[in-house]
Design a protein around this nucleic acid. Structure first.
Lengths: 143, 143
DNA sequence: TCCCCTAGTTACCTCGACGAAACCCAAGGG
DNA sequence: CCCTTGGGTTTCGTCGAGGTAACTAGGGGA
C-alpha cells in the first residue's frame, strides 16, 4: 500500500520485484490513516451533504429536500457521522416545531477544497470516462 | 443537489426556502455526472490501485501482493472497471506463464492529481478527525 | 376533530459488495 | 506424478449499507 501522496514512492515497485521481505516494505500506517478519511468520500451521501453545506447553514428538512433521494434515516445517520468526525456542527433550537441547523466547521470548510477539486475534475472529465466506457463496451461486444 | 464545485451556488438555499418549484431548481445533471466519477473513490480498492499504478507499470500479481488484503476476484473486477473507464491500460504478453501489465493512461494520470490532493489532505488532517471523534464519543458517553 | 409539520428513532427487509475457495490452462521442476 | 506459477473465472455464502414504514412530541390550520 502506501499511496505515495507526496513521498517519493519507489518502495512499492521495489517490494513487488524483490519480494524477499514478506510484504512490509510499505508503511501501512499511512495508507490506513488516509483511508480512514477518504472512506468518507465513498459514502454516497457524505460528499453531497458537505458540498451543500458549503453554501451555508441549512436546516434538516432543507437538506433532505435538496438532496433528493436520501431517506430520513440516512440523512440523520450521515449527519451524525459528519458531526462526530468534526466536519459539521449541529445547533438545536428547542422551539416547538423543532429546528436544527447544520453548518460546516473549519475542518469541514478545509475539506471542501480538495473535494471541490475532485468534483470539478469529475465534471470536466466525465465525457472522457463515458467515451472510454462506450468504446470498451463496443470492443467487448464485438469480440 | 448540484455541488457548486465552482459555480456560484445560491440555488440550493433558494430552492429549500422558497419551495414553490417542486425540487428541480438545481441542475441534477451535474450532480449525477460528478457522482458517476466520484463513486469510483468509494470503491475501497480503486483508489489504492490507481495510487499504486501512479508509481509506474505493474503486473497483476505484483499489485495483488502490494495491496495486501485484496482478493484475486476483487483485483480483476476492479482492474476491469478501471480499464473500462479508461484509467488504465491492460497489456497481455502471450507467454506461457502468462504476463499482464497494467499502466495508467493519460486520464488516469490526470486523476492522480486531485486524488493525491485528497490523500495528502487526509494524511494531514487525520489527527484532527480522530480528536473530534474521541471528543464526540466522550460527550456522548457523559450524557 | 383530525391531520400535518419538524426532527428524529426504531424495527424490519432487501440486495449488492465482497471474501473464500475451487477450478482452468500450459509449461517447467522435483 | 504432482506441485507451482500467473492470471484469471465461477460458485457459494455472509454481512452490512441503505430503503420503507411506523412511531414520538406539541401546536397550528381545515
Amino acid at each position: 500500500m502506501s499511496y505515495a501522496t507526496d513521498l517519493t514512492e519507489t518502495s512499492a515497485s521495489r517490494a513487488a520485484s524483490t519480494d524477499t521481505a514478506p510484504s512490509q516494505v510499505h508503511k501501512p500506517g499511512q495508507c490506513t490513516r488516509a483511508n480512514e478519511v477518504i472512506s468518507l468520500v465513498g459514502d454516497k451521501w457524505s460528499v453531497q451533504i458537505v458540498m451543500l453545506l458549503g453554501t451555508g447553514r441549512h436546516r434538516f428538512m432543507e437538506i433532505k429536500r435538496a438532496i433528493e433521494g436520501i431517506s430520513q434515516k440516512m440523512l440523520t445517520v450521515t449527519l451524525r457521522g459528519l458531526e462526530r468526525d468534526g466536519y459539521v456542527t449541529r445547533t438545536v433550537y428547542p422551539t416547538i416545531p423543532p429546528k436544527v441547523e447544520y453548518e460546516l466547521t473549519d475542518l469541514g470548510l478545509d475539506l471542501l477544497e480538495p473535494l471541490r477539486a475532485l468534483g470539478s475534475w469529475a465534471l470536466a472529465n466525465h465525457d472522457r470516462v463515458v467515451a472510454a466506457r462506450t468504446a470498451y463496451d463496443a470492443r467487448a461486444k464485438a469480440k
